[in-house]
Write a protein that binds this DNA or RNA. Structure first.
Lengths: 158, 158
DNA sequence: ATAAAATTGTTAATATGTGTATTATTGCCT
DNA sequence: AGGCAATAATACACATATTAACAATTTTAT
C-alpha cells in the first residue's frame, strides 16, 4: 500500500518521518480491526480481550489488578477504565471489589467464566497473531519492536 | 518500555509476535496522543488535521474529495465520516456540496479559513514529526515503513 | 429497457478514547 | 494532631470508531 498523504515539503526527511507515522497509525488500525473480527464470535472486543489477558498474566496468583494499574498498563485514561469495567462486569467476565487495604481502590478479578473463555480463545489468538507477524522473520520482528520502542521513548521525553 | 503482556505459551515465536503487535498498538497510541496535544491549541484533533491534509494534498486542484474517498483513504468506516464532516463544517474548516455528476456523493472542500489554518500548522507539525522520528536514522525509518507495510499486506489477504 | 446489484450517505445503537471536575480516601509534613 | 497534597474512582461532555439498517441513486446484467 502506498502513502496516502504527501506533505509537499522540500525536506525529504520530514516527508519520510510523516510516512513512518502514518504507517504506524494504519498498521495499528488494521491490526485492531483484524483482532476485532477474530474476537467478535466470542462476544469480546479487542480491548476487553487485552484487559483479560492482563488480569490473567500480570496479576500475582490471580489476585487481580486495580483500575489504576489497568489504566497504566493499557496506556489509557483512568476514566476510560470505569465504563470498560462496567460493561465487562455486566457481561460476567470480571468482578469489581473494593480493596480492603485501600478503600479508594477497586480490585478487578477474572470470573470463572471469564477464565474459561480466555483459555479457549488464547491459543487461537496466539496462532492468528503468529500467522500475521510471521511475514517478518524473528530477527525482523525484534528490530521492529526495538525501533518502535525508540520512537515511543522519544515521544515521552518532554 | 518492557512488554506488558506475556502469553505464557511455550512457543517463543508466538510471544514475540504478540509483543510486536502490542508495540505497534502502543506506539500508534502514543503518537496520536502527542499529535493531539500538539494540535489542541489550534482547535483541531489529529483526525481532523489528517482529513484536512488529505483535502489539501490528495485532491486535484483543490476540487475536493467525496466522503467515500475520504473514508477509503483514512481507513475508517463511511458512517464515521458523516459526523466528522458535520463537526468540521460547523467549525468552518470545510464545506459539503452535493456532487452534480453523482447525486449520491458529497464533495468536501477546504474553506479559506481552513486553508489558512492548515498553512500555519503544517510546517510546525512537520518539524515536530521529524523531531520524533529522527531518533531513527533515515535508513531505519525506511526499514520500519517496509516492515509495517509487509504486516499490513499480510493482514488483508483473507 | 428493465430488473437486480452495487454504491453513497445517513441514522441509530454501542464501544472506546480524551479532558475536566468532584468525591472519598490516604499519605505527608510540620 | 491537623492541614494539605496526592491518588482512586466516578460523572459528564464530547470526539471517534464500529455494525446494521435504510433511502436515494447509479451501474450492471439480461
Amino acid at each position: 500500500m502506498s502513502l496516502e498523504i504527501e506533505l509537499g515539503l522540500n525536506e525529504p526527511v520530514a516527508l519520510l518521518a510523516h510516512e513512518a507515522l502514518l504507517s504506524t497509525y494504519y498498521t495499528a488500525s488494521n491490526l485492531r480491526k483484524k483482532a476485532g473480527h477474530f474476537l467478535q464470535p466470542f462476544g469480546l472486543t479487542d480491548v476487553q480481550f487485552n484487559l483479560m489477558m492482563l488480569l490473567k498474566h500480570q496479576s500475582r496468583k490471580g489476585e487481580g489488578l486495580t483500575q489504576a494499574q489497568l489504566s497504566s498498563m493499557m496506556l489509557v485514561n483512568r476514566a476510560n477504565i470505569t465504563s470498560l469495567i462496567d460493561r465487562m462486569e455486566k457481561a460476567g467476565f470480571v468482578t469489581r471489589t473494593s480493596s480492603p487495604s485501600d478503600r479508594r481502590s477497586n480490585i478487578i478479578v477474572l470470573t470463572e467464566s471469564g477464565k474459561e473463555l480466555l483459555d479457549r480463545i488464547e491459543p487461537l489468538y496466539a496462532e492468528e497473531v503468529k500467522r500475521i507477524m510471521d511475514i517478518l522473520v524473528e530477527d525482523e520482528q525484534k528490530r521492529l519492536i526495538g525501533m518502535l520502542e525508540k520512537v515511543r521513548s522519544n515521544i515521552k521525553e518532554d
